[in-house]
Simulated assay, not measured.
Amino acid sequence: MNLKKISALGLSALLAFSAVGCGSNKSSKEKEITVYTSIESEYIPAYIELFNKKHPDIKLNIIRDSTGVITAKLLAEKDNPQADVIWGLAASSCLILDDEQVLAEYKPKGIEKIDKRFIDTKNSTPHWVGTSLWFGVISANIEEGKTKNITAPESFADLIKPEYKGQIVMPNPGSSGTGYLLVSSWIRSMGEESAWKFMDDIHKNMKSYVHSGSAPTKSTATGEQFLGLGMDFESLKLQKNNPQLKTIFTKEDFGWDSEVNALVNKKEIKDDSKIFLDWAISPEAMEAYSINRGLITQEGVNSKVEGYPENVKDRLIKLDLSWMAENRTRIINEWTKRYGSSSK
């Protein structure tokens, strides 16, 4: 999703969320923070309502966009930061931001309950902390398949079959964290040469590339095409109320990324920013995330999303987030050169 497409939504969302806590007697400067996020817009109001119950005097200005757009915005503003907090951005993006000194150190309360695999270990005091992770799946509209007399794939490798020509939509990795997750995990699992050959072949079957990580799954559910590549939790949640949609956990193991929170590095760091980051990994917040996410980083919090294979955690590929961050620009540039003209 690009800025033009979400401008009206972003403005209305900002107005709605920034109204929180307006009744405080303290100055707005002291009790107001700006939060940049790529969490899906439909989930944010419920989370903010929970935060406001605990901290009604803190006003939150929420700026929401896709992973690529938020990352680019933070990099562009690094010499004059506008955000106070990053909430729910891809870890692979936050590693890039950290290399550019966009992030500040902060060890939020309750960090000892978070799986250590999803906490920054590069710095002596963490610069980011993970809350959940997601991986790529295929969503299939079974009714569309019956109409077109096409069977659903069982693997990403199946997607190069000629019967799927014009039947696939996936996220653009330049703007979507999910898109980059898919592309980078193919490269890591197949090797560079084989992965680009695979993407050349799948490109022949692609209907379009879109800027939102959730859009392919949503448009597949409504029958705009047979197949969408997207996020595990999004597909399973839509599947629950859309029986025509089937979530396919591929034969290949799953490439993944983590949603993380971070404090923005700036001259004046507000105490309220740290209060928000403490809340954002609290048991209350984690339970709220578990309604919409499949894998939660806090010990003892299990997902409420139904439909995952029992061995899902064992099938996550061994991933190098640093490699994803270091190679992001190169991979996206190559992908754009090859396929970018087909992106919407």
Rank of each mutant, 00 (worst) to 15 (best):
Ala16Cys: 07
Met190Pro: 03
Leu159Gly: 01
Ser27Pro: 06
Lys344Leu: 13
Ile62Glu: 01
Lys54Cys: 14
Val85Ala: 10
Thr222Tyr: 09
Val183Gln: 01
Gln225Gly: 05
Glu192Tyr: 08
Lys251Thr: 13
Val312Tyr: 10
Thr125Gln: 00
Lys344His: 08
Lys5Trp: 08
Pro216Leu: 02
Val169His: 03
Gly255Cys: 10
Leu11Ile: 08
Lys31Tyr: 14
Asp65Glu: 15
Ser176Arg: 05
Phe226Cys: 04
His203Val: 00
Gly230Cys: 02
Leu95Tyr: 10
Glu40Phe: 13
Ala152Asp: 04
Pro309Met: 08
Cys22Val: 15
Glu224Phe: 06
Gly68Gln: 05
Arg328Asn: 06
Pro45Ile: 04
Ser93Lys: 09
Cys22Gly: 13
Ile168His: 01
Gly177Asp: 02
Ile96Pro: 02
Asn149Phe: 03
Asn2Gln: 13
Ser38Tyr: 03
Asp232Gly: 01
Lys318Arg: 13
Lys318Phe: 13
Arg117Trp: 06
Gly213Trp: 00
Asn311Phe: 09
Asp271Glu: 15
Met231Ala: 14
Asp320Asn: 15
Ile168Met: 06
Cys94Val: 01
Ser155Glu: 03
Asp65Arg: 04
Ile39Lys: 06
Glu49Gly: 12
Lys204Arg: 12
Ile291His: 10
Thr222Lys: 10
Cys94Leu: 10
Ser290Phe: 00
Gly110Pro: 08
Glu100Tyr: 15
Ile33Met: 03
Ser341Gly: 09
Asn123Trp: 06
Asp79Glu: 15
Asn123Thr: 09
Phe51Lys: 04
Ile48Asp: 00
Asp314Arg: 11
Asn149Trp: 05
Pro56Ala: 07
Ser184Cys: 14
Phe156Asn: 03
Leu15His: 07
Pro56Phe: 07
Ser208Val: 12
Asn25Cys: 09
Ser175His: 08
Leu159Arg: 02
Ile202Gln: 04
Lys165Val: 11
Ser176His: 05
Asp99His: 13
Lys146His: 12
Leu227Met: 06
Leu159Ile: 02
Gly145Ala: 11
Lys78Ser: 09
